[in-house]
């Protein structure tokens, strides 16, 4: 029986991890895995810290990724990577979007955004960081940032190369955005 794998996608409400996690879970099911995914809706979506948790393997019980158990954490915003650090498995990897969103207390001058997060995390764990929006913009649309991050996640997880990701993108994305998103996935995968 294969071990259950754990993925965390973390960010700020409104950044839209939904499509990336939808493609991911649908592909994992078709590849024959048991899959569970958990996310929280509601008030936290109004600019709060949000997470999407994905678990897959022969048999998955809990839908929640525990502390010290994520094989890969994909952070859509850099302070969120720091917030979820304690959920990373020892030896796990982080994919961090080099992008900051100021929380309200920073905007009001009552707190400071921590400096040097990515360098700090690189001292501790295996980090791949890049500006996902720039990669997506070069391909034609900054909104494909999610799929760039998905590509990087699939590469970081390993063991998922047999899945036909292009077909999954075709099945989940509007026809006019298919080509863009395929390119975005492969750009993320090649980083």
């Amino acid at each position: 029986m294969s071990e259950v794998k754990n993925i965390l996608l973390v960010g700020v409400g409104g950044q839209g991890t939904i499509l990336a996690s939808k493609i991911l879970t649908s592909a994992l099911m078709k590849a024959g895995y048991d899959v569970k995914m958990s996310e929280i809706h509601g008030m936290s979506q109004r600019g709060g810290s949000v997470s999407t948790q994905v678990r897959y393997g022969d048999k998955v019980y809990s839908p929640i990724v525990g502390k010290g158990s994520a094989d890969v954490i994909v952070a859509f915003e850099e302070m969120e990577a720091l917030r979820w650090l304690d959920h990373l498995k020892i030896g796990g990897k982080m994919v961090i979007n080099d992008y900051q969103i100021q929380p309200v207390p920073v905007n009001l001058g009552t707190a400071e955004y921590p400096e040097g997060i990515i360098d700090h995390l690189k001292e501790k764990v295996d980090v791949l960081s890049f500006k996902a929006a720039d990669v997506a913009t070069e391909l034609g649309n900054p909104k494909a940032m999610n799929i760039v991050l998905l590509g990087a996640l699939v590469k970081a997880m390993g063991g998922l190369d047999d899945i036909d990701w292009d077909a999954e993108i075709e099945a989940n994305v509007k026809p006019k955005f298919v080509e863009l998103n395929k390119k975005a996935f492969h750009a993320g995968y090649s980083l």
Binding site: G48, G68, V104, K124
Partner: peptide
């Protein structure tokens, strides 16, 4: 039993939800 985790001294700032 508690899981082994990474720790850090660097503090994060809370993200209270706000009117859009």
């Amino acid at each position: 039993v508690e899981p082994e985790t990474y720790t850090t001294d660097m503090q994060t700032v809370v993200r209270p939800p706000a009117l859009c």
